[in-house]
Nucleic acid binder design. Sequence first.
DNA 1: CGCGTTTGACCAGCGC
DNA 2: GCGCTGGTCAAACGCG
Length: 214
Amino acid sequence: METSDSGDANSDKKINMVEAEHVDVKSPLSNGTCRRIKVKRVCTRIDPSDTSLVVKDGYQWRKYGQKVTRDNPSPRAYFRCAFAPSCPVKKKVQRSAEDSSVVEATYEGEHNHPRPTGASELPSCAAQGGGSVPCSISINSSGPTITLDLTKNGGGVQVVEAGEAQPDLKKVCREVASPEFRAALVEQMARALTGDRKFTDALAAAILRKLPDY
DNA sequence: CGCGTTTGACCAGCGC
DNA sequence: GCGCTGGTCAAACGCG
């Protein structure tokens, strides 16, 4: 699904958890029409002492600004894709107000170029190609498809897919889309993943598999 | 010297 | 209309 092509994987920092969320938003154009741009939020757990606000995801980013926002004392960093000057993708990175060890990266738009060479090898559960442990949530608010890749407490994986928006699923969709549910889900996933030895072991194994043989 | 980062200034959108 | 806030620009600065 989308997680593979946008594939923004987190990589070589001290990452314990990755959570992704897709949201399509309408971007008003000058001619009065609305264009859908893809906004994806990725929460990444890093070392609290790491103040760089750099979330490596396989792409090259150029920082063009930093701002302290009202709702969060931590500065928000603004990045543009530096790999392709014409690439419209922007990234905002801000440390979570609740948990300083978590940074939230917000991706706006989609890359119009392939991932830089070697970057696709970066291990991540958000990069489905190399991820043996899916942990991403994809919520397509504009379409019928919901895919939840949830890592359960027991280390197992529960996948719920809705090809069509049936009545019950619509209800579920509304519930899932609610901020309360999302917040609780994020918190639960964070606890489950970071506290799950199997997950960390599997992630480490996946990283090792992806490393070139020297 | 070139490139990337930092940071203050500026601008646009929105609410009152 | 004004003030606040988020987002962007661009000059200054640092590093390799």
